[in-house]
């Protein structure tokens, strides 16, 4: 197993803004890596520096063992970059669009067509790229980045502006791509997306990496309470309080709002067995902390999109 990306102390300054302030990261081959952060956190600049579009003021970067700056054609054949879906020629069809971008890598039209098929766009191959739906346009831009079968793929907010169904559809595609052994680095606005897709995420703000780790690990480290809720009316609040007290469960709060009976606890096990004994499990829901809570704790602010 090798390392796909090593970045060490990258910094980039624009006039009076320190956009990237000493970012270091390591991405392993085959890993799905997410960079999270509010707008203006420096995610896109970091990604662009990794891709080799911008030169960092400071720091060392290696992609697949090679430096992305200055431009290195040997490396370029091995990496793929997805661009915003607006980056299409006006007046070209989906098929013409992928063909031209594939040709930049010497990839012929048969493989370009196969890639169109792969992202389920064969039916709309002759539709002008600008008239594709949001989900289709995103898939086309991913297909354009994949036509030359790169080992390492960069995605900048790949599902922004999509409806829930298109997002899920795209997630499946990205998982498949990752399952082929390709390393993926993405920035995203969506915490649920990062939680579902990424092996590891890095939370960024003010140009710095605040924390890196597997989403589940980060959430667990938060040590937040769990909220267990069942349908209201299955058992009364008072009984439950007593039973939980007897069982020695660490209960923070019990409340019944007429719709649900909710119990907040640090240890859901005893709470669940008490509810089970009472036969009060209808509509059971156990909600733990999410990446959003991690994010709030780290950046101290709402996740703005």
């Amino acid at each position: 197993m090798t390392t796909a990306i090593v970045a060490d102390g990258i910094r980039k300054r624009y006039r009076d803004i320190q956009a990237v302030d000493g970012v270091s990261l390591t991405v392993e081959t085959g890993e799905f890596y997410g960079i999270l952060g509010p707008n203006g956190a420096g995610k896109t600049t970091t990604l662009e520096i990794l891709e080799g579009i911008r030169e960092p003021d400071e720091g060392r970067i290696e992609l697949l063992g090679l430096s992305p700056w200055p431009r290195n054609p040997k490396l370029l054949t091995r990496i793929g970059v997805q661009f915003q879906s607006s980056a299409f020629f006006e007046r070209l069809t989906a098929r013409e669009t992928i063909q031209i971008f594939a040709s930049f890598y010497g990839v012929g039209s048969r493989r370009a067509d196969a890639m169109l098929e792969r992202v389920s766009l064969s039916d709309v191959a002759s539709v002008p790229a600008q008239r594709l739906s949001g989900g289709q346009a995103h898939r086309l831009s991913i297909a354009c980045a994949l036509a030359h079968e790169p080992e390492l793929l960069f995605l900048d907010e790949p599902t922004t502006g999509l409806d829930p169904q298109s997002r899920r559809n795209l997630w499946d595609l990205l998982r498949d791509i990752n399952a082929e052994g390709r390393t993926i680095v993405l920035t995203t606005h969506y915490l649920d997306e990062a939680e579902i897709l990424c092996d590891r995420v890095a939370v960024m703000d003010h140009g710095k990496m605040l924390k890196t780790g597997a989403p589940a690990t980060l959430i667990r480290e938060l040590d937040e309470n769990v909220r267990v809720s069942v349908e209201s009316g299955l058992t009364d609040e008072q009984t439950i309080r007593e039973l939980l007290g007897q069982a020695g469960a660490d209960v923070v709060a019990v409340e019944d709002d007429g719709v649900s009976l909710s119990i907040t606890t640090s240890l859901p096990g005893p709470v669940l067995s008490v509810l089970a004994e009472q036969g009060a499990l209808r509509g059971l829901e156990v909600r733990g902390a999410t990446l959003e809570d991690v994010f709030l704790q780290l950046t101290g602010r709402e996740y703005r999109t």
Partner: peptide, 18 residues
């Protein structure tokens, strides 16, 4: 995750000139 390595696998005769 399959052990399949990424990289160009398709036919090499399908080329295009930029």
């Amino acid at each position: 995750r399959p052990a399949k390595a990424a990289g160009p696998t398709a036919a090499t005769d399908d080329k295009a000139s930029p």
